[in-house]
């Protein structure tokens, strides 16, 4: 079970990284969300084997699952959700301004690069 979860974590990170390298902001957002899910699963894995009861009751049930990683994952999920909604709002704003959501080049860098090209061409 742990191996399967670990594999899922790896696949989520790989997909997230691939999507992150695209130019459309919507894909980047999805990529970040996938990486976030991977990280949350990893947190859950950090708590140890699956299958143990979640808390101590009045009966003797043996070892219980570690509650801390679950609390950490819950916090992280909330944060990822908030930030992803902000990014989507930003993507929408970008679409409103110029009707596409591509991440653009740095204007000032381009200008300086052109300046350098011109100097090289000059005799």
């Amino acid at each position: 079970m742990i191996v399967v979860t670990a594999l899922v974590v790896g696949v989520l990170y790989a997909l997230g990284t691939y999507l992150l390298l695209q130019r459309q902001l919507t894909r980047i957002v999805i990529g970040l969300a996938l990486m976030g899910h991977g990280a949350n699963l990893l947190l859950l894995l950090a708590g140890g084997r699956a299958g143990r009861p979640p808390f101590v009751g009045s009966d003797e049930v043996g070892p219980v699952a570690d509650p801390l990683p679950q609390a950490l994952a819950l916090t992280a999920i909330v944060i990822t959700f908030g930030v992803a909604s902000f990014l989507l709002a930003l993507a929408y704003r970008s679409w409103v301004i110029d009707r596409n959501d591509e991440v653009e080049d740095n204007v000032e860098d381009r200008r300086i690069a052109r300046l350098a090209d011109r100097r090289e061409e000059a005799p």
Partner: peptide, 18 residues
């Protein structure tokens, strides 16, 4: 985007350290 990527790595690091 770059800040969120770093934050995800941070979360990963916390998970691995735990």
């Amino acid at each position: 985007v770059i800040s969120i990527v770093a934050s995800t790595f941070f979360l990963t690091a916390v998970g691995l350290i735990y």
